[in-house]
Structure formats: structure tokens, C-alpha cells
Computed example of a mutant assay.
Amino acid sequence: MHNHYTPEQKMLADGVERFVREHGRFEQWRKLTAAGAAYDEDNWRRMADMGWLALAIPEKHGGFGASAADTMIVAEGIGRGLLREPFVSTSVMAARLLARAGTAEQCKLFEGMADGSVRIAVALGEAAGRFHLNSVRTRAIPSGAGFRLSGEKSWVPDASTAHWLIVPARTRGSEGDASSISLFLVAADSPGLRRTDFRSPDHQHISQLQMDGLDLPESALLGPLHEGLALLEYAVDHAIAARLAEACGAMDAVSEMTLDYLKVRKQFGTTIGSFQALQHRMVDMSIACEESRSMLQLALDGLDAPPAQRRRSIAAAKARIGQCGLYVGYQAVQLHGGVGTSDELAVSHYLKRLAMIDTAYGNADFQRDRFIALSDAVPAAVSQDAASTVEQEQMA
């Protein structure tokens, strides 16, 4: 992926690398985690000052109108530094949704999103939904001059610090019906909205939302009525690509840590990095990192393709990078030995993060099924490389 950088993207990548080196220290991460902080507010402000939060915001709304590849550069740095800033939630997924479907009034939020004063979370996960975006039980029924929202969202990253929530709800039909989902922009402090916060295994802050007769004005509708699923799929595919870039950054970081450890850890009178068997395992980790970058490029190339082809490319990349990430994480912990599992060492936390990225929006098993289901919708010649990758992985 680095070979495809334009001069401007190279400058951005250099800035992100410096930022992570100076402000992504593991000691600060542990301090914030122990204090219960959802993210580093100083880092969020710095990211806003450097313009990164405005990358996906259209130029007509004061942003840069940058490509997905530009936002992936920042996401990769977030993964490398194990950062928890809500960049993907607000500056990728929510920004893409507002840019495509927001009214003039709703798009006024872009100003606050760019300067970091407004954060938005997208409430996707529902109990028993198993990552299917059309599996929505939350309902919005007409009520007076607006809608009444009722239901539950069981897994909402970054909601605890969000000012607004984008909530998919069923406005007609039954569960699973793809043509009856609408999106609503909901203030996080709305009466009738209850939030329960908890932490995921990688210390990300997650929330459960309960909506009991939450009354919304008609202006809360984001996009056309009943036609929110296509918008949601588009934004989620961009979010998946960003998480995959984050995974690539994390894999590179933990591989470098492991290589450095092998060069200094001594056993039997010599550094363990001199053992050929361990060298081979490091080579396998490096191959997994490079393979993941190739699949990330496939995902990026597919983001501008027709919807079925886009979803197929994203599914292929998500399946393979998820598995490569887990492989690299497990190898890193094992090559560190017992200390690799300790809370005091960053390696164990990178493994946890890679595991949660694999699970986010559907793990490798789910994405393989999704890839196969989309096969009939995409000409075979269009995605032959992606199909070959997934089929080889299944055989392995």
C-alpha cells in the first residue's frame, strides 16, 4: 500500500508516524486505561488541529473531501499506536453518512466534527443480529409530527463520549426486510434514551442503548424513509476498511516489537533471534503483514465499485486480514514467552485489539459466508483475485 502513496499522502503518513511516535506511548495508554478514560482528549484535539478529523468531510462543508486512502493512513497510525480515539466512528462512518444523506441542517454538525467538539457514534449491534445489517428489531413508528423510537442496541462503540447517535430502525415490514430500514440522528442526551457503559476485552468503551418511547422530530430522519440500508452498508464498508488499516498498523507494530525482543533476549548463551526456527516464524509473520496490506489495497480499490462488488471486496479483505492479524498476534505473544501475556507488556494488548478488529462487523467466518453469498451478484472476472484468496484460505 505504501508504494501507492502520492506525494501528499506521503507527507500525511510522515505526520501520522511522528504523531504516533510522540503521543502514542504505551505508558500513557496504560495510565489512561487505569483512569477509565475512553480516549486521550489531548490527542483528539491534536488530531483536529492537524485537520485529520476533517478528511472525509466534503469541501463544501469546510472539509478536505479526501479519499478513503487518506483516512486509512490515519487509521493505520491509530492501530500502530494502539490509540482509542473515536476516529472511525465519527470521522469515517458518521462523516460518510452525513455527507451522503444529511440535510443542510444536519450537515451543520460537520463544523464541530472537524474541530473535535462533536462526536457521533453509529448504533449498529443488536442482540441475535449476528452482524447482519438488515437484522433490525428497533422500531420507529409515526407519532404526531415525527417518530417514536423503541428498541435496544447491544453493542455501540464510542457511545459513552458521543454527542449524537445515528440509529437504524425499522419503519415498516418485519425483521430481515431490507427495504424498511431508516436512519435517525438522535441527541445523546434525549429523554427516553438510557445508556449502560462497559469495556470490551481490549479496553474500548462500549455501550448498550435502551430506547423506550423516544420521541423524535421529523427532522431527525437521516436520508430517505425506508431506504437507510444501502446508506448503512456504504458507511460500514468504509468503516471496515478503516479497521483493516488499523489492523495492519497494529500488526506492523507488534511484529517490530517481537523482532526487537528476539535480538536482545538471551538463552543458552546467545540471543534467541539466532535460532533458525524462530527466524522462520518471524518470516511467516512478515509474510502475513504483507499479505494483509495487499488485501487492504483490494478493499480500497473496491470502495468506489458498484455496491455488490464493493461488499465482496470488503468481505474478502476482512476475512483474510482478520485471520492474518490473529496469527501475527498469537505468534508475537508466544515468541515473547510467558511475559507476552502480562498486562504490563504492550504485546498482549495488541493481540486483544487484533482479536476485536476481527470480530467487528463480522468475523472471518461471517465474511466468508458473505463473500460466497455475493458471488452470484458479481461477474466472476471482476473479483477473480479476491475469490482465489478466499478459496485458498478455505482449503488451508
Rank of each mutant, 00 (worst) to 15 (best):
M251R: 09
T270Q: 13
E59K: 14
T271C: 10
C289R: 07
V390S: 09
W44A: 10
D301I: 03
I73C: 11
T6Y: 11
R368Q: 13
D237V: 00
S135M: 11
I166A: 08
F275N: 05
I73F: 07
G112W: 07
E22T: 08
K263R: 15
D212R: 14
L244Q: 05
I372Q: 15
E41T: 14
S348G: 06
A245R: 11
D212V: 08
A121K: 04
A364I: 07
L12I: 06
L109V: 04
A48K: 07
D376N: 10
E105G: 03
E41I: 04
S286Q: 14
R30D: 06
L133T: 05
L183I: 11
G112H: 02
R312K: 10
I57L: 12
E391P: 00
G329Q: 04
H163N: 15
S67A: 15
E8M: 07
V136M: 01
L354A: 07
P7S: 12
T171G: 11
I321N: 04
G116W: 08
A316I: 04
A37N: 08
A37I: 00
V378T: 12
Y39M: 09
A188T: 10
Q210N: 09
L298C: 13
Q323G: 05
A387Q: 15
G15S: 13
A396P: 00
R80F: 07
S286Y: 00
N134F: 06
P142H: 06
G65T: 08
M257W: 08
S342G: 06
A317Q: 04
L12T: 04
V118Y: 10
S143R: 12
T90I: 00
S160C: 06
S154M: 01
A140L: 06
E85N: 15
G36S: 03
T90A: 09
H280N: 09
L296P: 02
G176S: 10
E105W: 03
L97P: 04
M251T: 03
L209V: 01
W164D: 01
E291V: 04
A253S: 13
S292W: 05
A127F: 12
I181E: 13
L133M: 08
Y5N: 13
D385V: 14
C248P: 06
R170G: 01
R25D: 13
G24T: 09
D14T: 04
G223A: 09
A317H: 00
L222R: 10
S313Q: 11
R18S: 14
P7K: 09
V88D: 01
V167R: 02
N363L: 01
T71I: 13
G116E: 08
A101K: 01
L296V: 03
D49Q: 15
S180N: 05
T359N: 11
G65A: 10
A35G: 03
A235L: 03
L12A: 04
R25H: 14
K263V: 01
M395N: 10
A241F: 03
C324N: 15
E152G: 01
L149H: 03
D284M: 09
K31H: 10
R243W: 04
S294H: 13
R195Y: 02
G151D: 07
S313N: 14
A360W: 01
E291N: 12
L303K: 06
Y350I: 00
R194P: 00
A355Q: 11
N363K: 07
W29N: 07
M50V: 03
F26S: 03
V74M: 05
